[in-house]
């Protein structure tokens, strides 16, 4: 990365990697969205069919994947706000690196309690007492 030309926004460094992560999280969330509309459509089939598919969402492994999904959506949302600020806020481009660090801190601060509350049932189920 040391040989990257100075002064470009997107080649190497924070500008490029935030874009790569934005693209990967966006594609991943899109494919989940296709699945999610179809599983929710089972409410038109029968309550039992819907409850059966939702039961898989409550299992430990899928529960962990949900934390990953929420993490992906949250990054895409926060970085999307950063993109809007780079595009429409006059000093935005000068502060794009600081804004990336800022959203990563916000992401971590929201994900720590978020993951805890999302996983608490699974943690108790796997490691907790029966009381």
């Amino acid at each position: 990365m040391a040989s990257a030309p100075a002064g470009t926004l997107y080649r190497g460094g924070e500008g490029m990697w935030s874009w790569v992560a934005h693209r990967i999280t966006g594609v991943a969330v899109f494919f989940f969205l296709l699945v999610h509309v179809m599983d929710t459509a089972l409410v038109r089939v029968s309550p039992a069919a819907y409850d059966a598919v939702i039961a898989t969402y409550k299992t430990p492994i899928v529960n962990l994947m949900e934390v990953g999904l929420v993490g992906a959506v949250l990054y895409h949302a926060l970085n999307g706000i950063r993109i809007v600020l780079v595009d429409f806020w006059e000093p935005g481009p000068r502060h794009q690196k600081a804004m990336l660090r800022g959203i990563l801190v916000v992401w971590l601060l929201l994900m720590i309690p978020g993951a805890y509350f999302m996983m608490i049932h699974t943690i108790e189920y796997l490691f907790g007492s029966t009381s």
């Binding site: 409550k58 949900e66 929420v70």
Partner: peptide, 26 residues
Amino acid sequence: GLVLVFLVLGHLLIMNVLDGGVQRIN
């Protein structure tokens, strides 16, 4: 995107985080 920030993060908060999260959905 800006509208979805509120809609989707609100959706995820209600469905996955608050009040038992996904475990209470049926």
